[in-house]
């Protein structure tokens, strides 16, 4: 069963085991103000496993990637790369692939709008109205995650295929022309992104909305706020922490994604993730791939900071 609060998964299992040096103080029970050096070190010891993990598998590779982005672009895997501090890699990469950058954020933004339109009501209903169906509905939200990302996206290929029932239906009601199609169009990529990342938006939103006291909604009604104003003045502000967290968790992976564009689109729909993918694995142009990766990171960071500035970081921490 999925818990109401707390993140899914046994996060607790990852906390440092009690037999670490710092944990031994526990045996003597609660200690008076006598703060030994060992106790002051305890928080750092608890941080150690995670910090070591981050340094080894995040900081070091990041530095390597940063270095790679400044290698001589004339090098190759066969000949080896020389460090030439080639800052020109960045403007070159941007000049060559700015449409893919634009597409990444455009598609991710469109998918975010779709996800908000479907995900907010969904999270609201699960949190406030579902009663005993709540846990079942939460499982339904998370269940697709039990299969692989790739398989799910391939399934959408079938759903959106030219002779599938969905396209047939759209043709019948003349939303699509007689030879109109969805697969290999931007629409398919956006739909795929929306579907694949929806749980990341719904779960934080659900956590916020679940804490929303229905008596506050009654109070708003009692104080002359109709349903729309109650939403605007009470529900929405109080769900802001979940909304901010959810949009970030949705938008960041969605804008860096390349599977959906790869499987549901054509090279005309390729996003920046596809370009990075091919730079590293197909064209073997490591300096360019690294430069593009950093540009994507910088762009996402800018979007996130702008987002937080508008909504206020305290909303996120509350």
């Amino acid at each position: 069963m999925i818990g109401h609060t707390g993140p899914p998964g046994g996060r607790d299992d990852m906390s440092p085991p009690a037999h670490l040096p710092g944990g031994s103080g526990r045996r003597t029970g609660p200690q008076p103000p006598n703060r030994s050096g060992r106790q002051r070190l305890l928080p750092y010891l608890l941080l150690l496993p995670a910090a070591a993990w981050l340094v080894l598998f995040f900081a070091v590779p990041l530095v390597q990637l940063a270095a790679a982005s400044l290698y001589d672009p004339a090098g190759s895997l066969a000949t080896g790369y020389a460090m030439t501090w080639a800052f020109g890699n960045y403007p070159d990469a941007l000049a060559a692939y700015w449409p893919q950058f634009g597409r990444s954020f455009g598609y991710a933004g469109a998918a975010l709008v779709l996800a908000l339109l479907t995900g907010y009501p969904l999270a609201y209903v699960i949190a406030q109205k579902a009663g005993r169906w709540r846990n079942l509905l939460l499982v339904c939200v998370v269940a697709p995650m039990f299969t692989s990302f790739l398989v799910r996206t391939l399934a959408w290929k079938t759903i959106l295929s030219d002779n599938g029932w969905f396209v047939g239906l759209l043709r019948d009601v003349h939303l699509l022309g007689p030879d109109g199609r969805l697969l290999a169009t931007p629409v398919a990529v956006v739909l795929g992104l929306t579907y694949n990342f929806l749980p990341f938006l719904v779960l934080p939103l659900y956590a916020s909305l679940e804490r929303l006291d229905p008596r506050l909604l009654e109070a708003a009604g009692d104080l002359y706020a109709g349903p729309l104003r109650t939403f605007r003045r009470v529900t929405l502000p109080l769900s802001m922490p979940g909304l901010v967290a959810g949009t970030l968790l949705f938008f960041i992976p969605a804008s860096g994604d390349y599977i959906n564009a790869e499987l549901l689109g054509t090279p005309n729909e390729y996003m920046i993730g596809n370009v990075v993918d091919s730079a590293f694995l197909v064209r073997l142009d490591h300096p360019q791939g690294a430069a593009l990766s950093f540009l994507l990171m910088a762009a996402i960071l800018a979007v996130v900071l702008g987002h937080l500035r508008r909504t206020g970081p305290e909303e996120m921490l509350r």
């Binding site: 006291d213 008596r215 109070a219 708003a220 009692d222």
Partner: peptide
Amino acid sequence: FQSYALFP
């Protein structure tokens, strides 16, 4: 209201 239901 009994719980006051003030807007936090």
